[in-house]
């Protein structure tokens, strides 16, 4: 099948999303350093092409599940920078009212079934979303993002087996950024590629250049179309690189600076920008304007989170543990 061709505006939208993710993560890093943001934060810098390319291939009726490195998926799925930043800062105005933070952003109504702090734990959830779509006879799909580390969990194997067996409309997108925290894939994976495992689950497996947004878009589009036709799941392995460490305190002693330079030279934003310039779809002036626009949006998100958003009230601590039940310190009662 011929890949779908993106219009110029769409391509510029993808570029802007990639810039948004980059700027957002840079801002998060800065706020962490200034101690204005607490908690863990796993940056998506370097992997922008995957979330952006993949989410461009789906529509409003589709779902995604995200990971502990999930900011990019949210933004690519159309999340509001302000609500995301507020959530990272633990504010009442955030996507999860400050309960989730960096690792648990969700917007179920908008098709984002959420991020998770447990490596691999959303793979069964995405599989269940696919089951629901199949049972409801929808043409929709679920994109399941996960990392190379998750590919070694039992949840991965159980889920892909089930999806392959039942032909569920799920696209499993492995973001292989070469390290599970500090351990390289060579030291963790018994096969060379995660995609090699697809044959064990009776689904196509494909390796994709995760630093090239249009390649990701095309591969995911193809897998999505296959799923929509009722032909079942696909396993895509997007080879990429985590430019930053696992989290802020990571000294990166498990990898060389040369290796980092090698990958930074393949920066997904720079590559896409170059492609668009060569194609005549973008000028340097337009790029600068886009960068400026994204910078302003990011600053507005920071202002919203830090200056315009209240903290959640401890009075609401017990809200929403259960639906229709009231919980106090010691008792749980059904609301009358």
């Amino acid at each position: 099948m011929a890949p779908k061709i993106l219009a110029r505006n769409d391509k510029l939208r993808l570029l802007k999303q990639m810039l948004q993710i980059r700027a957002f993560e840079d801002k998060v890093f800065e706020l962490l350093a200034r101690d204005l943001l607490k908690g863990a934060s796993h940056a998506y810098v370097g992997e922008e092409a995957i979330a952006v390319g993949a989410c461009a291939a789906i529509g409003l009726e589709d779902y995604i599940t995200s990971t502990h490195r999930g900011h990019g998926h949210c933004l690519a799925r159309g999340a509001d920078l302000k609500l995301m930043m507020a959530e990272l800062c633990g504010k009442a105005t955030g996507y999860c009212r400050g309960r989730g933070g960096s690792m648990h952003i969700a917007d179920v109504k908008a098709g984002n079934l959420g991020a998770t702090g447990i490596v691999g734990s959303n793979i069964p959830v995405a599989t269940g979303a696919g089951l629901a779509l199949q049972m409801k006879k929808k043409k929709s799909v679920c994109l399941c993002f996960f990392g190379d580390g998750a590919a070694n969990t039992g949840a991965f194997h159980e889920s892909l087996n089930l999806a392959g067996l039942w032909k569920l409309p799920v696209v499993y997108i492995c973001e292989n950024n070469l390290y599970g925290m500090s351990v390289s894939v060579e030291r963790a994976l018994a096969v060379k590629n995660v995609a090699d495992r697809a044959s064990a689950y009776n689904m196509p497996g494909k390796i994709v250049d995760g630093m090239k947004v249009l390649e990701v878009y095309e591969a995911v589009s193809e897998a999505v179309e296959r799923a929509r036709r009722g032909e079942g799941p696909t396993l895509l392995e997007c080879k990429a690189y985590r430019f930053r460490g696992h989290s802020r305190g990571d000294s990166r002693k498990y990898r060389t600076r040369e290796e980092e330079e090698h990958w930074r030279a393949r920066d997904p934003i720079e590559q896409f920008k170059k492609h668009l310039l060569e194609e005549g779809a973008l000028t340097e002036e337009e790029f600068s304007a886009l960068e400026k626009e994204v910078g302003e949006e990011t600053s507005a998100a920071e202002r919203f989170a830090l200056q315009e958003s209240p903290d959640p009230s401890p009075d609401d601590l017990y809200d929403d543990v259960y639906v229709d039940y009231e919980q106090g310190n010691t008792r749980l009662r059904r609301k009358s």
Binding site: Y63, P124, V125, L131, K136, C142, G154, S159, N161
Partner: peptide, 28 residues
């Protein structure tokens, strides 16, 4: 079998897929 499904011996997938299906509007 549409509504009564034998699964593989995969407890994590059974519970997790039920959760995903529940979040997407079913009642497993």
């Amino acid at each position: 079998e549409e509504r009564v499904k034998d699964t593989p011996i995969s407890e994590a997938a059974i519970i997790g897929a039920a959760a995903g299906a529940a979040m997407c509007g079913l009642r497993p």
